[in-house]
Design a protein around this nucleic acid. Structure first.
Length: 340
DNA sequence: GCGACAG
DNA sequence: ATCTTGTCGC
């Protein structure tokens, strides 16, 4: 079975676990005649936040003729005892499999969770990754603010298939309002999207396109990253990791909020600080032309306030700041072209 | 039914 | 993020 669980060195990037293999192993541990929950499996992986991914992965195996007979997906139900989500025929199938193993399923499609099985053997690989984030986050907290540079870049990812990422880099001159450099790369991606762990999914591709631009000698002084920076439960969003790995100044900019609460005292419409555990981590920005706000936090090498200055400078014509809008457009166009 | 956890 | 029909706005 090889090495299970995440191990890492103190200084470098951690070994990224193969979560699908880990989950497959755990599901196969559930004994005949027993049931468990998606959340229990997620906790066995090391974080309840993975529950949704566990559910979607099990549904995938359920619907895959190659996998469905090897993996007892039907022994996993929701926390309230309900059978897994899905079409009526699939829920019926799950009920039949459970009844066949001697488990009582009510007419409404619910099992008694008093018998929930939970004795997994696991190294909790996600917990190892979270510990690594906690430990490395303080290293990224030093900064020496630069002036707002003329050229601000952005990196963004699209997917040409569920396992193939397209990373785009776009450098934008806000004074002349034009794109001055672009680059793209493609890379296989296997780590799933789990809230709080986006770093381990998207940072390798982002760093690779940035290193490519560095070799071209065209690296901008600041890079906007789709996602969060310090505005993260462990202060280690994807923008922090990209900055740390590349030693570039980075800013996390997201369309939705991962964590942080607006400070009650502030009345400003266009900029409200976001706090978590009595710590100011970033800001919610509003643009008069757009309904939806933007969530901004430093990744690496910049203060919160300078990060805000820079994002406001390049946020003009679209819902996303111009460099990100262009990077999104570019990566999506290439991903679509590759899909054909 | 509601709230919700980046991409 | 991606998958998609119908819908809305410039």
């Amino acid at each position: 079975m090889g090495s299970r669980g995440a191990t890492e060195s103190y200084t470098g990037w951690p070994v990224i676990p193969d979560l699908s293999s880990e989950l497959r192993f755990l599901v196969k541990e559930i004994p005949c005649g027993q049931v468990t929950t998606f959340g229990a499996l997620a906790e066995a992986l090391g974080d309840l936040a993975a529950a949704r991914w566990v559910a979607t992965q099990l549904a995938q195996w359920r619907d895959d003729p190659q996998e469905t007979t090897n993996i007892p997906w039907f022994r996993v139900v929701r926390r309230n005892g309900d059978l897994a989500a899905g079409a009526i025929v699939q829920r019926q199938h799950q009920a039949e499999r459970l009844v066949h193993e001697g488990i009582t399923v009510s007419t409404s499609g619910r099992v008694d969770l008093a018998v929930l099985w939970n004795a997994f053997h696991t190294a909790q690989p996600l917990k190892a990754l979270a510990d690594w984030q906690h430990r490395v986050a303080p290293v990224a907290q030093c900064y020496a603010d630069i002036e707002i540079p003329r050229v601000v870049a952005a990196v963004d990812l699209s997917y040409s298939s569920p396992t193939q990422a397209v990373a785009a880099y776009v450098a934008y001159d806000w004074n002349r309002a034009e794109v001055v450099h672009t680059a793209t790369i493609t890379l296989p991606v296997t780590f799933p999207y789990i809230p709080g762990y986006l770093t381990f999914r998207e940072v390798p591709a982002m760093c690779q396109v940035i290193e490519h631009v560095r070799r071209q000698g065209r690296l901008a002084q600041v890079i906007l990253v789709d996602g969060t920076g310090r505005l993260h439960p462990r202060r280690f969003g994807v923008a922090v990791a990209v900055g740390l790995m590349t030693q570039c100044s980075t800013i996390g900019v997201s369309k939705r909020r991962l964590c942080g609460q607006p400070s009650p005292g502030e009345s400003s419409e266009e900029c409200v600080s976001l706090w978590d555990q009595d710590e100011r981590l970033g800001a919610q920005l509003r643009h008069p032309a757009f309904r939806q706000p933007l969530y901004v936090s430093p990744g690496f090498g910049l203060s919160i306030d300078r990060s805000i200055d820079i994002v406001q400078r390049v946020w003009q014509q679209h819902r996303l700041p111009e460099p990100q809008f262009e990077a999104d457009k570019l990566s999506r166009a290439l991903a679509r072209r590759m899909h054909k």
